[in-house]
């Protein structure tokens, strides 16, 4: 099966661009599985957060998936297009990475 991931990319101050990638997947695989495969197969510079991979314990992979805030590690890949974007109400760092650290756990408050 094939999924198309339409990913919003870019850094603050840049015009956001949508890049589409096709990934092959097996039934049951997650959006995070797809993103990790993309980095290995196509573009290693794609930025997204994750830590626990599979357990939904770290809660770092939260992003906008088809317009809904969700975890990339628990939403499954599907055939056709899945739109991925950074969290809309958090400061953008790059690509799918936003500033989600509590303010007192940052090196300095971002401007």
């Amino acid at each position: 099966m094939k999924a198309t991931l339409a990913i919003q990319r870019g850094a603050p101050g840049e015009l956001p661009r949508i890049e589409s990638f096709e990934v092959t997947f097996e039934h049951g695989q997650s959006v995070l599985d797809g993103l990790r495969a993309l980095r290995c197969e196509v573009d290693p510079s794609l930025a997204f957060r994750f830590s626990c991979i599979n357990a939904n314990a770290c809660k770092e992979c939260m992003m906008l998936i088809d317009g809904r805030v969700d975890y990339a590690c628990t939403v499954r890949l599907k055939e056709g297009v899945t739109a991925l974007g950074p969290l809309p109400k958090k400061a953008l760092i790059r690509d799918l990475v936003t500033e989600i650290a509590p303010p007192d756990e940052r090196l300095w408050p971002r401007q």
Binding site: E26, G28, N54, A55, N56, A57, C73
Partner: peptide, 9 residues
């Protein structure tokens, strides 16, 4: 197996 997401292996 089967593929399990959202839980610790």
């Amino acid at each position: 197996a089967p593929r399990l997401v959202g839980m610790d292996p």
